[in-house]
């Protein structure tokens, strides 16, 4: 008998396998190792954002600002590197600090003034997006030796597959978040706040520090994803990542994290991102389907998983 909390996770995993098999039968080259590594590289920034979102949702909150923060950090990188000729190794830490401060500010508003996370992060989304547009309305290209160097580096995998270096960085982030969530005290606090923040406070959980830390972490990761995105596109653009917040939320929920908080797994989010990626890949292979079908499919999938959570929750309350 499988524990009830593993049911959504198992469903996601089965869907992933089924999609892969169907695609493999339908299209040549779908069930290849390269497609798997591409899944990882093409969705690297989404995975990073979704990992932060996992923490936020585990704590019972929500962060609608992530897509805009991705855009802001991308634009900042591009403008500082291309127009101001700053060295990237100075720009990246700066952008990460700005992102973290942004999240700290949102977390503080949420904690100290008891404002609802959705409205604070919605305002944050508009603020970051507005700031990005103010800095540059046009897409700014990046030409820097470091970018070419990073783009060319990577590890050759068996089966002619190629794992670019920034995918490796993403795997490192994944490992870090896994440890943070499942093996650190902070991770325990995140679950505690998501379970019942009043009880958590009574049990001595540092709510202020944790809440602010969670949103700071989410924005930090979004800024990190923005940097990654510049490596992917060699540019920064204020309109990147529109709707990415929903993709991230969808990945987290499809990965088995309870929307009400308190239960979920980091590796589930990885599965969620992979499943969404495979839907995109399938639609690209299909060719005749428009890309907005992916949007609709993911929306429906998200709906199904939310409904599944409701049903499982209800039956667990009765049982």
């Amino acid at each position: 008998m499988i524990a009830r909390r593993f049911v959504p996770l198992l469903a996601t995993f089965s869907l992933l396998v089924v999609m892969f098999i169907i695609g493999g039968f339908q299209f040549e080259g779908f069930a290849s190792f390269q497609v798997v590594t591409n899944l990882l590289t093409d969705n690297a920034f989404l995975l990073v954002v979704a990992l932060g979102m996992t923490l936020v949702i585990l704590s019972g909150g929500i962060d609608l600002s992530v897509g805009a923060v991705v855009a802001l950090s991308g634009v900042l990188c591009a403008v500082l590197i291309s127009e101001y000729q700053w060295p990237p190794l100075l720009v990246f830490p700066l952008v990460l600090v700005i992102g973290t401060l942004f999240g700290t500010l949102m977390g503080s508003l949420i904690y100290f003034y008891k404002l609802q996370p959705f409205i604070v992060t919605l305002a944050g989304m508009f603020f970051a997006r507005g700031l990005a547009t103010t800095i540059s309305e046009e897409s700014v290209g990046i030409e820097h030796p470091l970018y070419y160097a990073v783009a060319d580096s990577g590890i050759a995998l068996p089966g002619n597959a190629w794992l670019p270096s920034y995918a490796i960085i993403v795997l490192a982030v994944l490992a870090g978040l896994f440890l943070l969530t499942h093996y650190s005290r902070f991770g325990g606090y995140v679950y505690a706040i998501g379970g019942n923040s009043q009880s958590a406070a009574l049990m001595g959980v540092p709510i202020a520090r944790s809440t602010i830390g969670i949103y700071a972490m989410s924005s930090f990761l979004a800024a990190f994803a923005g940097i990654l995105y510049t490596f992917y596109t060699f540019s920064g653009y204020a309109l990147t990542g529109i709707g990415m917040e929903l993709d991230a939320i969808a990945a987290v929920v499809i990965g088995g994290t309870l929307l009400t908080g308190g239960s979920g797994y980091i590796l589930g989010t990885l599965l969620g991102v992979m499943l969404m990626g495979i839907i995109h890949t399938y639609i690209i292979f299909e060719g005749s389907l428009n890309s907005w079908w992916a949007r609709i499919a993911i929306g429906l999938l998200l709906f199904v998983f939310i409904a599944l959570q409701k049903v499982l929750n209800r039956s667990s309350q009765r049982g």
Partner: peptide
Amino acid sequence: KLNLLIKAL
């Protein structure tokens, strides 16, 4: 483009 910023604030 300042619109978004001002409204968010």
